[in-house]
Design a protein around this nucleic acid. Structure first.
Lengths: 362, 362
DNA sequence: TTTCGGAAGGCGAAGCTTCGCCGGAGCTCG
DNA sequence: CGAGCTCCGGCGAAGCTTCGCCTTCCGAAA
């Protein structure tokens, strides 16, 4: 009684259930009058097709799985939003498989998705970057695209240009004349942290500034971590004149630490954040930051995945690809760029790479 | 070839697929040796049961659907995290059905979930509070719990005490001696905004402060909206001495507006936010705010839903319930409470209602 | 020897769709 | 007037699992 089946509709309209199926799917050739009768019955009864049965037969569920390590994380959840949005455009549903805080059950989570016969999987799980069993499963029969490094490789990856983001920010600070540029990183267990440190070091090298390990502090991606790391950094290197912070919430924490110590921003210390969250426009002072195409990362990953699913359905096995999405700097007051009174609205001026993200996928 | 079926496992171990099923489900009585052979074959072949077929037969998919209007919203995504976490504890998967930004396709989204035969649905979609067709569907044969008001009622609701939150914050400000207390609301299309205004007015009435409509401004839940609303408020009521802001990001925006105008916080104007996001601990100054049990809201909604699903499976029809979760005030510097140098760590001192959220559901 | 009981495992059906194929009715064309 | 075609709709099967029931076999008790 809970659910109305095709048979119920057929019984009510006096035809076989196969005929009802034809009508409801617009296939075959059915008399106009019968068709109306069936459509009417379906409407009256509130018939909703059973995707389980359909998927069982067609071997396609029009569902993609998303493995994310933390949906409440602002950054990851934006990527997930992108995936979901693009999936919906393709008429696909999304089923989520989250991972416990320790990231120890990536494989279990993946199995739960495979059991439900998802057509493909997008992983948004930096915590699982090092999980070899997880990586192996991703290389298995079911199509997968990751937005982060996969242990063992062999899986298509779509990711923002982390190194480029750090490099962009650091070169910006160097161009403003800063020579003592510190950095606050995210957690060390995430590869993006290392990529961003690498970009920071590359920019230093390119601008002839010596790298000083004392100017690097690790945070936890949260405001509190940025605050604490900021204090440590200022204790150790009082001559610091600028900091690149690996995300905006930590940058907000650094602003608080600088404020507590009576150091003006940007006069005494310039700050550049990363991610361009909505918050960044209204910190005190407004935060110069690097815009990362988070939603786009998810969208492109989903689009790529749908493509791979098609390819595989057609019997082909496309090569794994790697797409790196360009990022752009958003100039605001915290790095000292705009004249006083300049509006704090985003304004991209420099970016990395070509706008490859805009290019339709081949 | 993509997926291994029970038949494949059975063929490899020389038994009928029904026997293989018995072994894999630990039912029936099978010789130890045969059992080992089947288990071995399943392992070798990498057999993963097909949840579609299982769900088709058992009429239960162990999957719950979540309809959320915006997964990238910090507040909503925390609720979703709670739902997901609790669902996982019960061995359920979660499938998401998001709604477009206009909130016009709630019914379509719900249909997509019903098609996939979810066991129940949790809605985290304040945008759909007024959608009558959506509400009607929620009262239908499939179990549902909402974390927001449902048009037409008749559906169990779990929600934080919005009115209590506003009342708590406002009474706090009144107790500090403020008489000109303004408020910045969220978008008017969300019921929580109205509930919080109601709580604010109730607190004013209780403390003998006249309500002044000039002291109410509408924001958009985002920092920028808080910033703009703050300026409008200060233009209109320069004698304002305190503001309750309906969420923390807008409060951050208000802090920026006050800073731009050279008004010190809390000396010239006290500020209290809402939601207790991690950011609130490190704004300048740290933000007094109301802690809302967001994750818990999701968890409890999911737990309640699972209970309803069980009840219905047993043929009973439980009465819709309404749970209101208590909230608590977190004192920090922006309201002027702590002495200088007091650590900004959360410290709950006052809350609404009993700790009913902790009580196990009957 | 007969009978009973339990262990082991096979068989058929159901759950809901979709797809390919077939048969009958009515019509057109030669 | 019969051959052949189109239109309409039914039938059977498949897709993967679970469940209830049945058969076979073997040892033990009567």
């Amino acid at each position: 009684m809970a659910h109305v089946s095709l048979k119920d509709v057929a019984a009510r309209s006096g035809v076989s259930f196969q005929t009802a199926s034809k009508v409801l799917n617009g296939k075959g050739t059915v008399a106009a009058e019968t068709r109306q009768r069936i459509l009417g019955a379906a409407e009256e009864l509130g018939y909703v097709p059973n995707a389980l049965a359909r998927g069982l037969l067609s071997r396609r569920t029009r569902t993609i799985g998303v493995v994310a390590s933390d949906f409440s994380d602002t950054v990851l959840s934006q990527v997930v939003v992108g995936v979901e949005r693009e999936a919906r455009r393709h008429g696909h549903g999304v089923i989520i498989g989250s991972v416990d805080p320790e990231g120890s059950d990536g494989v279990r989570s993946l199995h739960a998705l495979i059991e439900r016969r998802v057509d493909g999987i997008v992983t948004v799980a930096p915590k699982l970057e090092g999980d070899r069993a997880f990586g192996a499963l991703l290389r298995g029969p079911i199509a997968a695209v990751s937005t982060h490094r996969v242990a063992g490789g062999g899986v298509s990856v779509v990711e923002p240009d982390d190194a480029g983001a750090a490099s962009l920010a650091t070169r910006h600070l160097a161009a403003l004349g800063h020579r003592r540029i510190g950095t606050i990183t995210g957690r060390g267990d995430r590869r993006a942290s290392h990529a961003r440190v690498a970009g920071y070091r590359r920019a230093l090298a390119e601008t002839g500034i010596p790298f000083d390990p004392d100017l690097v502090e690790e945070g936890d991606w949260e405001p509190e971590g940025g605050y604490q790391a900021g204090h440590r950094l200022l204790d150790r290197a009082p001559d610091l004149s600028a900091v690149f912070v690996q995300n905006d919430p930590m940058a907000a924490g650094l602003l608080a630490a600088l404020h507590d110590r009576g150091r003006r921003v940007p006069a005494d210390c310039a700050v550049v954040g990363c991610d361009n969250l909505t918050l960044a426009a209204r910190t005190i002072p407004p935060l110069t930051t690097v815009a990362i195409p988070l939603v786009e990362t998810g969208e492109i990953a989903a689009r790529l995945l749908v493509g791979v699913v098609e390819e595989r359905a057609a019997g082909r096995t496309p090569e794994p690809r790697r797409l790196v999405l360009p990022v752009g700097l958003v100039y605001r007051a915290s790095s000292g760029t705009p004249a006083p009174g300049t509006p704090a609205a985003p304004r991209n001026v420099a970016g990395t790479g070509a706008a490859s993200a805009r290019r339709p996928l081949p």
